[in-house]
Computed example of a mutant assay.
Amino acid sequence: MKALMISVMAAAAGLALAPAALADDQGYLAEVSSLGLPVSDDNRDVLVQLGRQACLTAHEDPAMRPDDLAMQIAEARSAYPFEKATVVVTAALHNYCPDVTATPSVS
């Protein structure tokens, strides 16, 4: 859980926003919003960081289930309980790493 927070912070520090990444961010944020999680200027950067980290973790540990990715976010970030974290993971897998085949169900 602390490792995820450190990883998110490290990813944020090293994020380079290429044009393709911006397009992915827009699609990701649009999906997050369409799935019911509000996106604002206040949480946009955190949502992008969480989504990119979820995708990175999914690639590093392909055996990890999407629900486990969501649980990591929920345990590390009190503002994103499991239901909200599941939305983040679902949108991240669709937009940042569509090559990861499994996706969690959003209730």
Rank of each mutant, 00 (worst) to 15 (best):
Arg44Thr: 11
Phe82Ile: 12
Asn95Thr: 04
Met5His: 12
Gly14Pro: 01
Asn43Gly: 07
Gln72Trp: 08
Pro81Asp: 10
Lys84Pro: 08
Arg44Glu: 14
Leu17Arg: 11
Leu4Cys: 09
Lys2Tyr: 10
Thr57Val: 15
Ala13Gln: 12
Arg65Tyr: 07
Met1Gln: 14
Val32Arg: 04
Ser33Glu: 15
Pro38Ile: 04
Met1Gly: 11
Ala85Leu: 01
Ala10Leu: 15
Ala74Pro: 00
Pro104Glu: 05
Asp24His: 03
Val89Cys: 04
Thr57Gly: 05
Val89Asn: 05
Leu15Glu: 13
Lys84Phe: 09
Ser34Pro: 08
Ala20Val: 10
Leu93Ile: 01
Gly36His: 06
Pro98Asn: 05
Pro62Asn: 06
Leu22Cys: 06
Thr57Glu: 15
Met71Glu: 12
Ala13Ile: 08
Gly36Glu: 10
Glu75Leu: 15
Val32Ser: 06
Leu56Cys: 07
Thr103Ser: 11
Cys55His: 00
Asp99Cys: 02
Val89Pro: 00
Gly27Ala: 08
Leu56Asp: 11
Leu4Gly: 04
Met1Thr: 14
Ile73Cys: 02
Leu37Asp: 05
Met71Leu: 15
Asp24Ser: 10
Leu22Trp: 09
Ala23Ile: 09
Val89Phe: 02
Leu56Ile: 13
His59Gln: 11
Tyr96Cys: 02
Thr90Gln: 13
Lys2Gln: 13
Ala74Trp: 03
Glu60Met: 13
Leu69Met: 07
Ile6Glu: 11
Gly27Pro: 01
Ala58Glu: 02
Val89Gly: 01
Met9Trp: 09
Ala18Arg: 08
Lys2Cys: 09
Gly14Ser: 13
Leu17Gln: 10
Pro98Phe: 05
Pro98Gln: 05
Ala23Asn: 04
His59Pro: 01
Val48Gln: 04
Ala11Gly: 15
Ala20Pro: 00
Pro38Phe: 02
Ala92Arg: 00
Cys97Ile: 00
Val46Ser: 12
His59Gly: 09
Thr86Gln: 08
Val89Glu: 00
Ala23Lys: 12
Leu29Ser: 04
Cys97Met: 00
Leu56Tyr: 09
Met64Cys: 11
Asp42Glu: 13
Cys55Ile: 00
Leu47Glu: 05
Val32Asp: 04
Arg77Ala: 11
Asn95Arg: 05
Gln53Asp: 09
Ala92Ile: 00
Glu83Met: 04
Gly51Met: 01
Gly27Leu: 06
Arg65Phe: 03
Ser33Gln: 13
Pro38Gln: 01
Gly36Met: 10
Ala76Met: 07
Ser34Ala: 15
Asp41Ala: 15
Ala79Trp: 10
Glu83Asp: 14
Leu22Pro: 02
Met9Arg: 13
Leu15Met: 12
Gln72Phe: 02
Asp45Arg: 08
Asp45Trp: 06
Ser105Leu: 12
Val100Phe: 04
Gly27Asn: 09
Ala85Asn: 01
Pro19Asn: 03
Met1His: 09
Asp99Trp: 00
Thr90Leu: 11
Val46Tyr: 04
Glu60Leu: 15
Glu83His: 07
Ala20Gln: 12
Ser105Gln: 12
Asn43Val: 03
Pro38Lys: 04
Val87Gly: 00
Ile6Leu: 13
Ala76Asp: 07
